[in-house]
Design a protein around this nucleic acid. Structure first.
Length: 517
DNA sequence: TTATAAACTTAGTACTGCACCC
DNA sequence: GGGTGCAGTACTAAGTTTATAA
């Protein structure tokens, strides 16, 4: 049982399609063509994305065109036969302008929009769960559009259909005020299932999977689950030395998703063995696409020569592991390990443990820097990558300019100090002595500032392609961070922003400086 | 016991809005 | 007061785990 009482307003539906003004045209084969409403709407999905890389990909184009044609009227279908004869540029321009116009709106208008959004959040964004008002994570249905699968996704560009109340299942408690569907509509179903945590759900048409409306991470329900997770990890720490392997993951349907792999769906082609590489002996090279089609590349030297061994029938799935020759026959050993959730063990435990050590080892002076370093080490270990920010080069240059300016200042300050010293030597009076002091202080200040800028630059460079958020939010036991803050007198606000503090309220409440993972 | 569906967590990217600068 | 850079937030895809059906 996940709750006793659950009351909410149901999802907020994406706004209906607004037809294009008459002066915005779609052209086929050079001729303006008025499209039916449904066809036009889908055309705008493509038009909006015209400057996106997606629209240059063949798979995207084909999927889009196929799905688009399915929604066309018979007449439209007769005419529109090739995507390359479609001209969406006016549509594209229209939306670019619209966007700019919105940005340029006067203050009062923007304020009005903001208030409207807040009103929506108030009305639909909260529910009552067991007497507490809790924030909902996603209270809006996903708007229609073109599917943006990541990596080499075979379904990219397919039409993601509009969700109607008739698609939505509502979950709430029987005796609560049951949400009203929008006027003229009804829900697909209303159910009263307190063994699950979701408030509403619908089936999306791309992968045929279910989407849910669920609570915000700040809620008690999610917080307790999170806590539980770390407690499991914590209990596993005593057996760390005995465990070395992941258990088999899930299989993926070929052609339905991008070809990505994990620890156990890894194929022979992803591993290269070298007797010697870059001056090191016995090197194993990994190269594959993981979750979100993020590339994992690593070269790992091992103590002894290894062989690729196929482990038969481990939960009926082939699993390739690297084993030292002595351990070829130890299937039963492996099997016993597979009872554990390898995921929990591997990630949460190991990362929390690692973070703890890194945090404890560093000196107090560079407290926050040290925290961020530990965070980064974990993120790198997990291969949490991000695209280099678009403004990276520029902001790096800006920083370099600042550094150069500071260097000049520093050089000048050195000169001045020299002069002041010479001056004091001649005059030997109080005034010139204090001048020397002043110049010394200035120099010290500038040196410190320069150092800070250098650190900043290093930090930035090292963070270029590293996404810190995921490990911070999902893998590092927040109680470790909280305890660390308390121990070293760092305000929690320095490491967790408002949202993060809300999510980790349980940990902030629970952990004192004595907490040990 | 195993296949499949449902439920729930983790993940990167796009957008938003605010602090800061000139 | 207008632009800009970036932290924070919204969004939703892509995983893993759990429940259920066969």
């Amino acid at each position: 049982m996940k709750w006793k009482q659950l009351e909410h307003k149901g999802p907020y539906f994406a706004p209906l399609y607004e037809p294009l003004p008459d002066e915005v045209h779609f052209y086929y084969d050079g001729k303006a063509m008025k499209l039916s409403l449904a066809t036009e709407e889908i055309a705008t999905f493509y038009g909006k994305m015209l400057d996106h890389e997606y629209t240059t990909k063949e798979v995207f184009q084909n999927n889009f065109f196929n799905d688009w044609r399915k929604e066309m009227t018979v007449e439209e279908k007769k005419i529109i036969k090739h995507l390359d004869k479609c001209d969406f540029t006016e549509i594209h321009k229209y939306f670019v302008n619209k966007n700019e116009a919105r940005k340029a709106l006067p203050k009062e208008e923007k304020q009005k929009l903001k208030e409207e959004a807040e009103r929506l959040q108030e009305e639909f964004g909260y529910c009552i769960l067991d007497g507490h008002r809790e924030k909902i994570g996603n209270f809006k249905t996903e708007p229609p559009g073109l599917f943006r699968g990541r990596g080499d996704h075979p379904k990219m560009g397919m039409l993601k259909k509009r969700i109607m109340p008739e698609d939505v299942i509502i979950n709430c408690s029987k005796d609560s005020k049951i949400p009203e569907p929008p006027p003229g509509h009804k829900w697909k179903e209303v159910r009263f299932d307190n063994t699950v945590t979701w408030l509403a759900s619908w089936t999306e048409n791309i992968q045929n999977s279910i989407k849910y409306i669920m609570l915000n991470p700040s809620s008690k329900l999610k917080g307790e689950k999170d806590w539980q997770k770390y407690e499991v990890a914590r209990r596993l720490k005593g057996v760390v030395d005995k465990i070395r392997f992941q258990y088999p993951g899930n299989e993926k349907e070929e052609g339905e998703t991008a070809d990505t792999v994990g620890c156990c769906s890894l194929r022979v082609e992803h591993i290269q063995l070298y007797h010697e590489l870059d001056g090191q002996e016995h090197v194993v090279e990994f190269d594959f696409l993981g979750k979100d089609s993020i590339r994992y590349y690593n070269k790992v030297p091992v103590e002894k020569p290894v062989k690729l061994v196929r482990l038969l029938e481990l939960r009926r799935k082939s699993l390739y592991v690297l084993l030292h020759p002595q351990t070829y026959s130890s299937y039963s050993f492996l099997r016993s390990l597979l009872l554990l959730s390898g995921f929990l063990f591997f990630t949460v435990f190991w990362l929390s443990y690692m973070c703890l050590h890194l945090l404890a080892e560093d000196n107090i002076a560079a407290k926050i820097l040290s925290y961020n370093r530990a965070n980064r080490a974990v993120a790198i270990l997990c291969n949490h990558q991000r695209a280099t920010p678009k403004t990276f080069e520029k902001s790096m240059q800006n920083l370099q300019t600042k550094i150069n300016a500071k260097k000049e200042q520093l050089a000048m300050a050195k000169q001045e100090l020299k002069r002041a010293k010479a001056d004091a030597k001649v005059k030997k009076d109080v005034k010139s002595e204090s001048n020397v002091d002043k110049k010394k202080k200035l120099l010290a200040k500038l040196e410190e500032q320069l150092m800070r800028l250098h650190t900043q630059a290093t930090d930035k460079e090292e963070n270029k392609q590293v996404a810190l958020g995921t490990s911070k939010l999902n893998y590092l036991d927040p109680r470790i961070s909280v305890a660390w803050c308390k121990k070293f007198g760092v305000p929690v606000e320095k490491i967790y922003n408002k949202t993060q503090r809300e999510k980790f309220a349980w940990a902030i409440d629970m952990a004192d400086e004595e907490f040990e993972f």
